[in-house]
Nucleic acid binder design. Structure first.
Lengths: 237, 237, 237, 237
DNA sequence: GATGAATGAGAGTTCATTCAT
DNA sequence: TATGAATGAACTCTCATTCAT
């Protein structure tokens, strides 16, 4: 089973770094982890120093090493559970839930974007660390690609299939195009709020609606007789 | 003027790091720059060491410092001209050219994606370095946001306006949504080829067509009486 | 008196390290001492770590410090009683006993070697620790030279005198030559079994006889009329 | 061939520690090596610190690591050439030379002891380091036992054979007993001068004579008609 | 009596940088 | 111009030791 695969793999990596991912974290350890997220996301793993993390966490440097054995151990102790707990179940379950619901395409996509954006914004620092560091640490890249993406893609593809069959989305695009398109729509929103903040002044709510609309209806004008409401009717008939 | 703004700013930064961005690079210097791109992109700026770069470039470590004065100087000597020369003219000019041409939306978007993808693939390492390091070096982030994006956005927006007026693209979406959407369509393609490589087996050419199609027409089914060909007619009328 | 000297000195050192050398050792403490002997002998005092000793002894690191107060305290708690109990009485008494007995030189020397070799082999690790660490810890060196050697030398010298007077050993060699020669004969045996193991295949018993013979009769051939048996007669006449 | 064996082995170890044993040492490097010998012999390898060595050598700590890469590299850079150059040729050649000469046993043994003692005293610190550290570093132990002892033992044994055939030494003792005995005679001298210094007041010259005499003639009295001079005659007849 | 958690001090090692040649 | 040698500062990590429980 997929889940066991992932768990075994995490276990294996954790053992290599002598980490116990299940052990309850004491108050001080939580301070360390928080400080580490903060500083890793600000300076990158290599740019961060354990002494800085220790200072921010208000513990002695040695305490970090007592608990996590090495700087890399600390990184993994941050990132692996985040991938496990955040990316895997917490991430995918709501996604599936949303895809399951019976509602118009617009609403589905809007909900998806909103949901993902919230998730990203709540875990911004961690996600930045995971994405950037997976460029430099092959184990992390493997974790993401093989154990998260590959493992969950079939399940997602299944939902996409259903939507296609229901006529909610186009059947002539391959699954991966749909999925990549959805992901990139989330990215589009993030790009617009981060890089083009100087251009748009609408509420975030409204922005999300725009990007959902773009993803749903495309960039070219539609004939007026096919506004969303009508499609809705069509689908139901 | 925009361009002068940028150039002055680059000049200012270059001076701070005692760099002459115009001086012709000798063979050895080119070896150093190439080695640096390679290693910076593989390990990140902080994770790279000058000694490793020197070894790869087959020069003495001191040689690097003779030419670029500091590690950061080396980074900037790589990154600033890249932004100047690659991002600014080479990047934007073909983009403008494509947007200028009189051809159907599909073709325009396809050409845009193809053009950008080529650009990205040819300069992969450099782009990775620029993007990642701009997270950690405020000057770089400023360079990108203020001096590249902000400076060029109006020009791009102007073309978008024209396309809207011509009825080629929808007029009801704000410019920044269109632009972000376009960028993210390029990203969608890159995501699909890099992360979901295991799913799609089509040719790259075909993949690009799919993403262009998605961007153009959206994810929901269109009524059959509005297939691209027809829209084409409509627009012409 | 000699013995008191030594005891006072040990007492003084023990106090400095806050050790009670007489207190009965609990099971855990014995585990610690055994683990310490093992690891000190394998890695040397400086190379050993308290955490390693604790792990091998299956106690918490803090427990070691509860009992012995410091790493050096642990070393001394091992080494001082060993010198006291092993080196001093247990070592010298049988030696004196052997020297006291009325038997031919061969037998005396053989018995001496056998006795010492057994002692060394049984206490190998401890002896290694004592010898090596006395190179680096002046108190230990002092203990050995002043309180063991100097203190017991006169007594040994007295026995040597007697043997000389009895004509059992040559009278023309100074006492210290005889004593050093005897010690080095034991060493010769140890060297041969440890370093030249690949050369000799005889039984240990036989090897000891050879070294005793060498020590007794020397390396050059004796005239046949003076084989051991005859000397025996001579001496008795 | 023996010699190549050793050289290959040294080469292999040196490579593992990234050492170039042939490179000429600069003045600073010689200072470092000398300081290292001194401090390693005083405190043992583990007890010595690189910072202390650097201070004594009057160089920056980093300089040590530039040249020897690690503390262990420094140890090996000291010890391997010492074994190669000192132990192997310089040690064995004079030994062979002495064994080759045509002179009475007494003179041979005296010369051997004198020669070895000089060698040991001149290289005291280095020898102490080699012997003690070979207890803790398996590579060093292997170097000594397999590559020095085993490799040279046959050659030494050959000379011993010759001496036996010439009637200079007893034929009834195995070679390894003779060799171990000879080594331990040197040790006997060293023990007497180091540990029993308080007993003997003779000149070193005289002490050596005593130990040579003990080794040659043994500890029991000889019949007067077999004093050395006579044996000499005997042998010649 | 025993221990888990914590730590100050310092160890070995790396790194960007300088300088004489 | 190019470099080998050298280094101060900082970094990761270890160690003996303490203390609250």
């Amino acid at each position: 089973m997929t889940k066991n695969d992932w768990e075994q793999w995490v276990q294996y990596i954790a053992e290599q770094y002598d980490l116990d991912l299940n052990k309850k974290q004491t108050a001080k350890q939580k301070q360390i982890l928080e400080a580490a997220i903060h500083i890793f996301s600000e300076k990158g793993y290599s740019g961060a120093t354990t002494s800085e993390i220790a200072k921010k966490a208000q513990v002695a440097e040695a305490t970090i090493f007592k608990h996590y054995h090495s700087k890399k151990g600390l990184l993994l102790r941050l990132v692996l559970p985040a991938i496990s707990k955040v990316v895997a179940p917490f991430v995918l379950k709501p996604l599936f839930a949303i895809l399951e619901e019976e509602k118009p395409a617009e609403k589905i996509v809007e909900d998806l974007i909103k949901d993902r954006v919230e998730l990203i914004e709540k875990n911004q620092k961690l996600i930045r660390v995971i994405l950037v560091e997976s460029l430099y640490h092959p184990e992390l890249k493997e974790a993401l690609v093989n154990h998260v993406l590959k493992a969950n893609a079939p399940e997602v593809a299944k939902r996409v299939q259903r939507l296609k069959e229901q006529g909610i989305i186009r059947a002539d695009l391959p699954d991966y195009v749909v999925i990549s398109g959805l992901i990139s729509t989330v990215l589009a929103y993030l790009i617009s709020t981060n890089l083009f903040a100087f251009m748009g002044t609408e509420s975030d709510e409204q922005k999300i609606k725009y990007f959902a609309d773009l993803f749903i209806n495309g960039i070219v004008p539609r004939s007026t007789d096919l506004r969303p409401a009508e499609r809705e009717e069509r689908r139901e008939s």
